[in-house]
Amino acid sequence: MYADFDLVIPETLDEALEALAGAVGGGNGGTQPLAGGTNMIVDLRARRVAPSRLVGLGRLDGLRGIRIADGRVRMGARTTMSDILRHPDLAGHAPSLVDQARVFGGQMVRNAATVAGNICSGSPAADAVPALLALDAEVTLASPSGTRVVPLSEFFLGYKRDARAPGELMTEIAWDIPPAHSSNRFYKLALRKGDAITVVGVAVALAAEDGKCGTARIALGAVAPIVKRATAAEAMLCGQALTPELIDAAARQAVDDVDPIDDIRASAEYRRHCVHALTRRLVTQAWERLT
């Protein structure tokens, strides 16, 4: 490869954090972490990034795996999309996350690409992010001076900008197991069913209380500089018994919550149309499962 850089492959998390200390978070140049490589190597080859040093995380087995205990799902940062598909229990309470893994790249990409890598890519089309936002996930960021937990809803600051301080490494993604009377769904609209970049991604999570919608989460991908929640639309659903009219009104509100662009895959107008249609469809499906 033309790109020129140093590569260190630490054996422990502490060594990795030392190696990353002082790194430039997310941007160009400096020291950057390397996980599955399915974004980084492509970006290096295209000269979109030019780090002087990469810190390979491949030997940090403690960062890989899914643990479900005490009402919480804890996913190591290096957990791959294939790990999500193989897990026996995840489809039961996070079908949205499993569904996005099924349509994430091709098999070889799913075998390498990590959840934290997808989040930290900062792409508004990152498929794991809508599902995790709708599940109210939190991310753990570590540095030699300690760790902190940040809600994923506060992680993205702007297009390819996030809350990581220089040198901070994402080590875990975690969320509470959704309550028994809840439902979550994800749909990816793309030009093909496999191995395609998302045109619009929608994740919905609803919880019912006494026949009404208790909490609602709607997260939208590839229709704004960051993956974002349609909070005004969510608010319209909370505390209500959902009717087709209300669901349609909330789906229209979701269109006002986004700011899509025209690009090679679709026009902004088409994306707005699909945000309405897909939000209405997914909220309807999620609600039907609860009533």
Partner: peptide, 15 residues
């Protein structure tokens, strides 16, 4: 035993 794209893996990482 797991398929990956060898164009996206750095050689040192498969030591």
């Amino acid at each position: 035993g797991e398929a990956i794209d060898s164009c996206l893996a750095l050689t040192w990482t498969v030591a």
